[in-house]
Every structure is written in structure tokens, then in C-alpha cells.
Simulated scan of single mutants.
Amino acid sequence: MPISVRKPEHNPLHILKSSLREKGRPATIAGPMVRYSKLPFRELVRQYNTDIVYTPMILAREFVRNEIARVSDFTTNEDDRSVVVQVGCNNVEDLLKFVEMIHPYVDGIGLNCGCPIREQVREGIGAALMSEPELVSSMVRAVKEKYGDKVCLETKIRIHKDLEETVRFVKMVEEAGVDYITVHGRTKNTRSSQPADFDAIKLVKETVSVPVVANGDCFSMEDFHKIAEYTKVDGVMAVRGILANPALFAGHETTPWAAVEFFWDLASSYGLPFRITQHHLSQMLDKLVSRRLLKEMNELTCLVDLIDWFDDHFILKRRMDKGFATAIAPVWKTDREELARM
């Protein structure tokens, strides 16, 4: 069955502009994660007050040239809204081809100008584009001149050591027609263990008139509100925080057991690869079980053993079971709760 036409209320720009008025808070956003923000996870976080969800970054050059890449890199369905596909690209030609292929199936397209992974930078994409404001502006302008309001286009950036360069960059992409800007408050060389620079994000918000999204160090709703209040942004993006706790934006301090059961149902229904499934569950269980048990789970080597491990330790309800995806705390098998705390 074909995907129906995108609805205006799912447009990220509409959500960013209306969220404070309609919900009393900035938009809640699950950011792009290499390998891990695939369709099952996107569906999961939408159960927990997430307004906009990103796909993993897709390389435009591979996507437009290779049918296998298209099939493996992007899957969606009728309920996958509001969804933004992130693209890695460094030239107008590939970006226009990519947008032409994918824009009917997404609500927005995000140009990645911030990924610090060495291989991506070497290819001239991701954070490499932070030193190429003219190139980024030309790509933004080409898309907006061709598609106008039919395509919602974002640029996701990091900051420069010299913030005057950041100001120049965002002014240029705004003039080129970008719809909104996401700012990760770290330079491409700043370690994630160092605090994000919210003064820099605040500066960008004060510099441009398009909506701005803050990215960095959002691990709880307390963080969300502090970031929003300090920077006055239109949306707050969580990445590592929401990977560890998909219910972050619903106010849960740790992953509720309901989310674990719901994720199991989605991962098995969609056929998520074993290692990705295992990693998601490892992140979710990190604060729920002992180090020893977590290590035991991470050493499993196949999906059948992973399912058996969960059934040995927990009462893991399936969709047809009464009370499926309703529990907050883990539901242990009778003799396991004490073991989990060891």
C-alpha cells in the first residue's frame, strides 16, 4: 500500500513553531543515531511524547546510485511521522537527486554538517562542511529554489572554536533559505564528556530568525527544561539520552519495563538485526540490572539466546498477553530479583 501524502501538521517547521503555543514547551526531538534510529526505535519513542524523530544518516551518493543501499538504509510506514531523514552530502547534484527520491516519504530532510567521525570528515561530509559555508549555502539554496515549501530543510551543525565563524555560517544558510537549524553545542574536536556550550546555542538563537533546536547533554526532562529556559530554543534534541531511555520525554528517569516489552515486540515484528536489538536492550537495561547481568546479556551471540535469556530472568509479556507494555519496574522471575542487585 502506498504511503499517503504528508500532512502539514507533521511538518517539522510547523511543530517547532507551534509546540510552545499548543503544548507549553519546545518540541521534543530524537536525534539521528548511526544504526540505531531505525523504524522500530522511531516507533517506540513516539509512544513517549517525542514530537520529531530522525533517521540514521544516509549517504546521498550511495543512496542515489545503489538500489541495495536504498532498500537497506531507509524503511518507513504510514505511522512514521513526523520523521526527518538525515543526509550526508557535499555537492548540489547528489543532494537534489536524493531529495527528489525521498521527499515524498518523509516530513523533513536534514543536511548533516556536524558528524565528527573521521571517515565522514575525510569524505568531505559531516563536520567537514563546517568550514565550507558557501558550499552548504549553495546546497540549501538549490533545494529551496527547486522545491520551496514542499521540502522542509534543516542543517545540523556543530559550533566553531571562534563563534564569529558560527554566526557567519548560520547567517549564510538562513539567507539561503534553510527552514531551521539544529546546533550541537560542541566543536568537532570536543569530547562528549565535556559539557555542551549552551551559550553558543543561545547566541545562534539570538542571531537567526528561523527556529533553532538545541542538541547536547539532554538526559532527563530536568535537562530539557533547563536547556529550553536558558537558550530559548524552539526544540530540544536528545540522542545519547533517549537511546538509553526511550521514555525520557515522558518524564521517566530510567527506561520503564513497558518500553522494553514494546521494543521487543517492534524489533521482532520488523526484523531488526540481532546486534542492533542487543545494543538497544543493553542501553535500556543499563540502570535496571547489575553489571554482571548486563555483561552476561552482552556476551550472547544470537537472537534465540537473547529471547531465552530474557524469559529466564524476567516475565516478558508479549503483545497478546494481558498487561502487555504497562509495567514500570522490571518484572523478575521469583528468585531473580535479589540476583539482579548483586
Rank of each mutant, 00 (worst) to 15 (best):
P2K: 14
K7I: 11
K17R: 15
G24Y: 04
I29N: 04
I29Q: 04
V34N: 11
V45C: 01
I58G: 02
L59H: 13
A60K: 04
R61K: 15
R61A: 12
R70H: 01
S82V: 04
V84N: 13
N90C: 14
I109G: 10
Q120T: 12
E132Y: 01
V136I: 10
S137N: 02
S137A: 15
V140S: 09
K144L: 05
D149V: 11
K150T: 01
I159N: 05
L163Q: 13
V170A: 12
V170L: 11
E174W: 05
A176K: 03
G177W: 03
I181G: 07
S193W: 05
A196G: 15
A196Y: 01
A200E: 06
I201T: 11
A214P: 10
G216V: 07
F219E: 03
S220H: 06
H225C: 00
Y230M: 07
V236C: 02
V239D: 07
F249H: 05
P256G: 10
L281R: 11
K287G: 00
E296T: 09
E299Y: 09
L306I: 06
D308G: 00
D311R: 15
F314H: 01
R318Y: 12
M320G: 00
M320N: 07
P330T: 09
W332R: 06
L339M: 09
